[in-house]
């Protein structure tokens, strides 16, 4: 059994099949890229793992534990999911960071001490935290969300198009950060070739017939 196992997963919305009989497994430490045209269920897969939607049939296991109503709240505390939607907050960046670290699950997390180091590594200035989040550029928002995911102390990452708005140099930096840690398990959806070159495995959704 892998770290994450998906068996015969089928999802459909309004009668339209998004995923059918999908099987997948990832081992601890593996870095896998999922690619393919949009609208063919890549993001849906992540949402199912996080319990953000209902599937019709099949099973999802994380560390052998079924992803169901009883376990989902613990699973969300173990998995760092970064969605492609970066419209996640109002107010200052520092308020956003404080809010995330005020959650019960994160109160004992001292990852915040790495904040400045990470901002720097992703070419963000330290006074960015005093800016309004909504006024940041797309690329800055993506990096702020990534910083939060990296500070979370989790070691399983579901990354959905997290480098789409970054320039080539930054894309490479982000990819390197995730690949450099052998303990981390990474499942990334992306159209960027920086991910494809380094990925241990590439799953192409385009060839799938739903």
């Amino acid at each position: 059994m892998g770290l994450l196992d998906i068996q015969n997963l089928s999802v459909s919305y309004d009668g339209k099949s998004i995923l059918s009989d999908f099987n997948f497994s990832i081992l601890k430490g593996e870095k896998i890229l999922i690619k393919g045209n949009s609208g063919i269920g890549k993001s849906t897969l992540f949402r199912m793992i996080m319990g953000f939607g209902k599937y019709n049939s099949g099973e999802i296991y994380l560390e052998g534990v079924p992803v169901d109503a009883d376990n989902i709240w613990d699973i969300r505390k173990k998995v760092a999911y970064v969605s492609q939607d970066t419209d996640i907050a109002e107010g200052k960046v520092s308020d956003l960071i404080d809010e995330v670290f005020s959650f019960k699950a994160n109160r004992n997390n001292n990852g915040k001490s790495d904040l400045e180091k990470l901002l720097n590594r992703l070419s963000l200035s330290p006074d960015l935290v005093n800016k309004e989040y909504m006024k940041l550029s797309g690329g800055e928002k993506q990096r702020v969300v990534l910083v939060l995911a990296l500070l979370s102390g989790k070691d399983i990452f579901l990354l959905d198009e997290v480098t789409s708005e970054l320039d080539t140099g930054l894309k490479q930096k982000v990819v390197d950060i995730f690949f450099d840690n052998p303990q981390w398990t990474v499942l990334a959806i992306s159209h960027d070739r920086e991910w494809e070159t380094k990925a241990m495995k590439v799953i192409d959704f385009s060839g799938r017939v739903n």
Partner: peptide
């Protein structure tokens, strides 16, 4: 309208009420 903000907080380990 802002479901993504709610889901983001859940992804960041928030309890429902948080």
């Amino acid at each position: 309208r802002n479901e993504n903000r709610y889901l983001f907080r859940l992804s960041m380990g928030a309890e429902k009420i948080e």
